[in-house]
Design a protein around this nucleic acid. Sequence first.
DNA 1: CGCGATTTAATCGTGCGCAACTTATTTTTG
DNA 2: CAAAAATAAGTTGCGCACGATTAAATCGCG
Lengths: 156, 156
Amino acid sequence: MTDKVEERAIPDEEKRLERQLCFAVYATAHAFNRAYKPILDRVGLTYPQYLVMLVLWEKGCQPVKTIGEQLDLDSGTLSPLLKRLEQAGLIGRMRDPKDERQVIVSLTDKGAAMKCQVNSIMAAIVEAAGCDMDEMASLREQLQRLRANLTADESR
Amino acid sequence: MTDKVEERAIPDEEKRLERQLCFAVYATAHAFNRAYKPILDRVGLTYPQYLVMLVLWEKGCQPVKTIGEQLDLDSGTLSPLLKRLEQAGLIGRMRDPKDERQVIVSLTDKGAAMKCQVNSIMAAIVEAAGCDMDEMASLREQLQRLRANLTADESR
DNA sequence: CGCGATTTAATCGTGCGCAACTTATTTTTG
DNA sequence: CAAAAATAAGTTGCGCACGATTAAATCGCG
């Protein structure tokens, strides 16, 4: 009733470790978000919007579908997000004449021009992360593997 | 020339790497969420709600503030979340008589009983992650360091 | 050719996550 | 002691995420 605290302090080492990994990913994602926020606020983007812009800067105009595949997001998330980017004058959207189901997302001049600012954004984050390149590469690879495992498992 | 494509494909090695790390964390967090979802659906919890329950199972009843410190969440996130857990009959909330500003969150019998189910939940995720313990420990440590860097930088 | 199945976006409802603000209760301090 | 500052929780507004549904266009198969 008041104190059943005794046996729950260290339930099981392996489970404890697992908890900390999933939580570490969760909390680090939030920390990244917070680190990006003040920087992205200056250019008027949210972090997911910035990711979409990165895709467009790198790969050029493309349908909503392929953006979603690269970012692992569906139309339920992307449609309103893209609408906001369009209202901000950074992207344009038009139906593909070859396949009217698809909406091709393209950069406006304003959106393309914003690419110049990406250098200072990334530099600020790299500094905030405080990792050397080897560390970053190693961490990224491990996360990619973990993510692949989790995603593969999902299909069962 | 043909170099033009290469130049565009890899604008700058360091920046490209950074993009992949922040995105890797972002996407892995989503992958964890999706991996947990079908499992947690069965017990009627969301992933953040599960994290709150983990804190309560481990440390016992405590004020909203300390839950927030451990999960890095503020009252704006926790208040409605705790309200839902209360409505689900898993936790209770009452003002601390010693300091009426604080609300002490406690487990109900139903909430405490749910702890038994955590074993199968964690086992399923560990299997889905497909990592051995060393890998998990290493990854967790790197993420904790990264998160600490990002958070420390924030205060500047 | 026609009609059902599939594909692509958009919409809706729910639940975070967080900044900004509000309210209530200490705590500090002049 | 009383006014001001600090603290804890809740509320509001906005923007993701995502499941479920809808609508339109295309594909495929008889």
